[in-house]
Simulated assay, not measured.
Amino acid sequence: MGSLGEEDLEKLVIDYIESPIISDDVEEQPSRVLITLQDVLGTKEEKEKQIEDKLKSIIRRNKLSYKRDDEKKDVMKKIVSKLRSDGYDAFISRTSWDSSFDRLEGCRVFRCTRKYEYIDVMVESDGDGDDGSKFRRVIVDLDFKSQFELLKHTKDYKDVTEMLPRIFVATEMRLKKVVSLVCNEMKKSMKEEGMSRPPWRTKRYMQAKWLSENRIRVSGSNKGSWSMFDDGQGGEDVGTTSRGGTGMKTKCCFPIF
């Protein structure tokens, strides 16, 4: 093979310098889960948008914030008071459920009663629901994102949770979809990190926080006026308004001590 001439060598050098540099780092594309979650979070009904806009306005105008649970309860009461003064049927709901052995999730735990509080706003139904209810719920959680935090997690799970809003306003159906997506990723993350998954991190448990069939109205009333300093005792049982309940009452499969 003959040697390269000066012109050929110069051409090779120029071609090398001007050629595009191909990096080994390929830009990451968003995962299918992230795309689906983004779609569910962004697809809001008009009534959800109205309540969310009203909520943001109340928080901004009244400079509401909290750090502790007791402060959060006080903020919820103030928000409910403002919503009710603007004509919304809003109240604080408390869900409760039994935590025990769950065959579907394969978890084993001593039975105990769990409780969680958030804001419910009843709105008129579009009339196309399966149960034919005249009203349905829009759930307002002031600390939604923190419910899914893990001390150890994969990058994929971190990307999912960073997409979650701190204040979440959603119908039962939309909330159920979000919780299901995030909990599936949580399960994968804990498995990859070599962590055993406790019962309170299962999908059925997490959904029960908002969708348990055992739900009572602890602040706010349809009858007469309501004080924002209601102590929340003697709540009214409001049951469930859709077929999205999780039916969390399970029997324990081993002795309770």
Rank of each mutant, 00 (worst) to 15 (best):
K72G: 02
K134N: 09
M228Y: 11
K177S: 07
D70F: 15
K44R: 15
T161N: 02
C107V: 15
M1A: 11
I59Q: 01
D70W: 14
F168H: 01
L211E: 01
E185A: 06
G245K: 14
C252G: 07
K177R: 13
S227Q: 08
I119A: 01
L64H: 02
L9A: 13
S3F: 09
D25G: 06
G220P: 02
E192A: 10
N62E: 14
E172W: 04
D143K: 00
M248R: 08
E213R: 13
F144A: 00
V121Y: 04
T240Y: 15
Q50F: 06
F254K: 13
K152L: 12
M206R: 00
L175A: 00
S180M: 10
P165G: 03
D141P: 00
G247W: 13
G129P: 07
D8F: 03
E27W: 09
G244C: 12
S212N: 02
N184C: 11
K72I: 04
S219N: 13
D237I: 09
L104H: 09
D74Q: 11
V123N: 04
G244H: 10
E149Q: 02
E7M: 10
K203V: 06
T43D: 15
L142Q: 00
E117R: 05
Q38I: 10
G232H: 04
S180W: 11
K155M: 07
L150T: 00
D131K: 07
C183E: 06
W200L: 03
E149W: 01
M76W: 05
I167D: 01
K73I: 15
K11D: 11
